[in-house]
Structures are given as structure tokens and as C-alpha cells.
Simulated assay, not measured.
Amino acid sequence: MNRTWKCLFLSFGFSIAHVASAQIPTLASCTRSANLLACVDADGNAYSVNTVGNTLYLRGFEKEGRRYWAQTNSRFGQLTFFTGVASNGEAWVGYTRRVGWTTINRFSSSGGSSAKFTCSRLTGC
């Protein structure tokens, strides 16, 4: 479960930071408008990202767990806070802080998962 959350968090972080990379056909099939990106991957998972100012609204469906989820990210300079909830009642909170080319990430969920990890553009996570 911990690895799943870390991968989910990273996939959204990278898709938000690099929207163009989410449109690579081998990763997901995406449709894009001025403020909205909607994608479906090869496994049947779906998500959308809507941008309103410094706030991102994420919505999705996780096929394996058969659950819907929603997450809101609010950016304040180099710091981004996020909160989310899933249809099975699980909730999560966390933040990402950018320091140069590095991000410091922390999250925890009501399901008992938590993690703190650092990612770099040069060395990865």
C-alpha cells in the first residue's frame, strides 16, 4: 500500500509538472483543453486535472481498487499542500516543497500509509 501511494503521488506530481509527458501514447491516452487534462491509461485507470489559478483539482477512478477519488492541491510559492478523499472513505494529506531542483515530499493517509521522501531531477527519488 505504501508503494502504491508513493507511485500515485509521484505520477500526479510528474503529470502536473510536465503535462506534455502525460500525452505519450504508451503511458496514457489524454485529452486536453485550456484548463483540463483528462487521461485513461492502458490498465483502465482514469483521472483528470483541472487548473484554477494556483489550485489543481484532481479526480480519478482506480480500476484495481474499484474506487473513485478526488484531490485538491494548493500552491503557495515553493510549497504545495494537498488533501484527498476516496469513495472507500480513505483520506490523505501532504505537502511538497521545492528547493532548487529537489522536492521534499511528505504524506499520510487514514489507511495507515505515510512516507517522507526526496526527489531530484538528477538522481530521481
Rank of each mutant, 00 (worst) to 15 (best):
M1P: 06
W5C: 10
W5Y: 14
L8K: 12
L8P: 02
F9I: 14
F9H: 14
S11A: 14
F12S: 08
F12L: 15
G13R: 12
A17W: 04
A17V: 01
V19A: 14
S21D: 11
A22E: 00
P25L: 02
A28C: 08
A28T: 03
A28L: 01
S29C: 10
S29W: 07
S33I: 01
S33P: 01
L36N: 11
L37T: 13
C39G: 03
D41E: 01
D41M: 02
A42I: 14
A42H: 13
G44R: 01
N45S: 07
T51S: 05
V52P: 00
G53H: 03
G53D: 07
G53E: 04
L56C: 05
Y57Q: 08
L58E: 04
L58G: 04
K63G: 05
E64M: 14
E64C: 11
G65S: 14
N73L: 14
N73A: 11
N73S: 12
R75K: 12
Q78Y: 11
L79T: 08
T80K: 01
F81H: 09
T83I: 08
T83R: 09
G84A: 02
A86P: 02
S87K: 01
G89M: 03
V93Y: 05
V93G: 07
G94L: 03
G94D: 00
T96L: 09
T96F: 03
R97Q: 12
R98G: 06
W101C: 11
T103P: 00
R106K: 11
R106G: 10
F107G: 01
S110Q: 02
S110L: 06
G111E: 09
G111Q: 11
A115L: 06
K116N: 15
F117E: 00
T118A: 06
T118I: 15
L122M: 06
L122N: 05
T123W: 08
T123M: 07
G124I: 06
C125S: 04
C125Q: 00
